[in-house]
Design a protein around this nucleic acid. Structure first.
Lengths: 205, 205
DNA sequence: TAGATTGTTAATCGATTAACAATC
DNA sequence: TAGATTGTTAATCGATTAACAATC
């Protein structure tokens, strides 16, 4: 199924909200109610529904259960995907803990680091391996996504190893620009740039 | 100065790259060289230059020093902005440490938490205050930006306190959707949604 | 039925890319 | 001068919003 990135993001958010909303409210929801939960327009919700081929009822709106499982079929694709965290420093551990708490089909199954203190132990509940075995472990554990939280100096080298090992997507927390082939899906979380962006716009008046 | 958000993000990245590039290469750079560093088009670099009113030389390109200071004038606005971290858990501490290492005019000056163990101590180098004094401290320390790393249950309440205290911008690491007035600049780092988005697109083939 | 809501097409908006004259 | 590069306008692309007929 071909969908715009923004729609996929919203689908993920719809699902999370609906799971919560379901226990609080009825079993159906109108486009404007769902829109209000995310501060977007009802037209956008309806357009997203159209794109995923989900239809509602003009009187009751959309069935929450049906929508949750529809989104699941699209977002999860029916199976679990495995994630590796490259760099088990403060940020790597924090993100790992954070993701584990979430209700998602994604599983963090391995960490990689160079620190001998961490290697071959469990850190925040996941096995930590030396970077040297990264290619083997990526294949062995069928890992398709990497979270990159290594120090800036190591970013390019580790990314090269990830790409060579066939990784398909990267969430990049380093401030280093990564050059990845078109078929690899890259998302940058550039914290300092985002803060500078916020800083700039908070001064506009 | 009125600029599109994407341009502001790129300015931040240009500056970071130029600081590094400067020590490695000459004192001028062409639009295509700068573009290559970020995998964008030279037209986009030139358009950004146009928007900030920065002109180059058709033979030598853009003066690196002049560009760095021009961007600084825009991004930093000539003074330091203070940041608070709401929620000094794993993620809050990791982000704090991360930002402190960066070369930027932004300063994290306070943390807030409810844990009595942390309150009124220094955590990763910044003073940690109880949430109850948040409004006072935001004003007293002239804090305009908040990084939100509280647990999901506390997100809405703490955001309300931040808004009431006159905060101008928020970097939201919680998965909770925040409803902020139009004049407050909000940026969401929704880790699980981003991972689900990556998961979806890595399965497209 | 009347009224609200859905589904979908058309219009708009913001951002990127293409094209090209001006100029070093 | 010839050739590469800048600066800028026009075209395109992707996403959001407006409009409205169909329908429960």
């Amino acid at each position: 199924m071909k969908l715009p990135p923004r729609t996929v993001e919203r689908l993920s958010k719809y699902r999370r909200l609906l799971r919560k909303y379901k226990t609080e409210a009825g079993d159906h929801i109108h486009s404007h109610s769902l829109a209000d939960l995310l501060n977007i327009s009802p037209e956008q919700v309806r357009r997203d529904m159209m794109l995923i081929g989900h239809t509602g009822n003009q009187r009751k709106g959309y069935s929450i259960d049906a929508l949750i499982s529809r989104i699941g079929g699209i977002i999860d694709g029916g199976f679990t995907q495995n994630i590796a965290v490259a760099g088990i420093g403060n940020l790597g551990r924090a993100v790992t803990t954070f993701v584990r708490k979430a209700e998602t089909q994604l599983r963090i199954v391995a960490g990689f680091d160079t620190d001998p203190q961490k290697i071959n132990t469990e850190v925040v509940g996941i096995p930590c391996y030396p970077i040297s075995v990264l290619p083997d472990k990526i294949r062995e554990l069928d890992i398709s996504i990497a979270i990159l939280t290594v120090p800036p100096d190591a970013a390019v080298e580790v990314t090269g190893m990830l790409l060579d090992s066939g990784i398909k997507g990267i969430l990049n927390f380093t401030s280093v620009h990564l050059d990845v082939p078109g078929e690899v899906y890259l998302k940058d979380y550039d914290i300092v740039t985002s803060l500078e962006e916020i800083g700039f716009f908070t001064r506009q008046n």
